[in-house]
Simulated scan of single mutants.
Amino acid sequence: MHYFASFGYIEEIWGMILGFLLVSTASAIVESLPISSDLDDNLTVPMASLLVGAAVF
Rank of each mutant, 00 (worst) to 15 (best):
L22V: 03
S36A: 06
S49R: 08
F57S: 14
L39H: 06
I17Q: 05
L18V: 04
V56S: 09
E31I: 00
L43V: 14
D38M: 01
F20D: 04
S32G: 08
P46I: 10
T25H: 02
Y3N: 13
A26F: 04
I10V: 14
Y9F: 15
Y3P: 11
T44K: 12
G53M: 12
I10Q: 06
E12F: 10
I13A: 09
P46L: 10
P46T: 07
V23E: 02
N42A: 12
L50D: 02
W14V: 04
F57H: 15
M1F: 00
A48T: 11
H2T: 14
V30T: 12
V45D: 03
G8S: 14
S37D: 04
F20N: 07
E12P: 08
L43H: 11
V56A: 11
G8V: 14
F20E: 06
M1T: 00
P34C: 01
M47K: 12
L22H: 01
P34D: 04
V45A: 04
V52P: 08
I13Y: 05
F4V: 14
L50C: 11
A26W: 03
G53S: 10
L22I: 05
E12V: 07
E11S: 13
L18N: 01
L18F: 01
G19E: 05
G53C: 12
F7L: 15
V45L: 03
A28K: 00
D38T: 02
L43W: 10
M1S: 00
D40N: 10
A28Q: 01
L21W: 10
S37T: 06
A48E: 03
I10Y: 12
A55W: 08
G19H: 09
D40G: 03
L43M: 13
A55T: 07
I13E: 10
S27I: 04
D40C: 02
V56I: 15
I35M: 07
A28R: 01
P34Y: 02
D41C: 00
E11Q: 14
L51R: 00
S24C: 00
L18E: 02
L51Y: 00
D41I: 00
V45T: 05
L21S: 12
M16A: 08
Y9H: 14
F20K: 02
L33W: 01
A54L: 12
H2Q: 14
E31M: 05
S49L: 03
A48N: 04
V23W: 01
F7S: 15
S37N: 05
A28E: 03
S6Q: 15
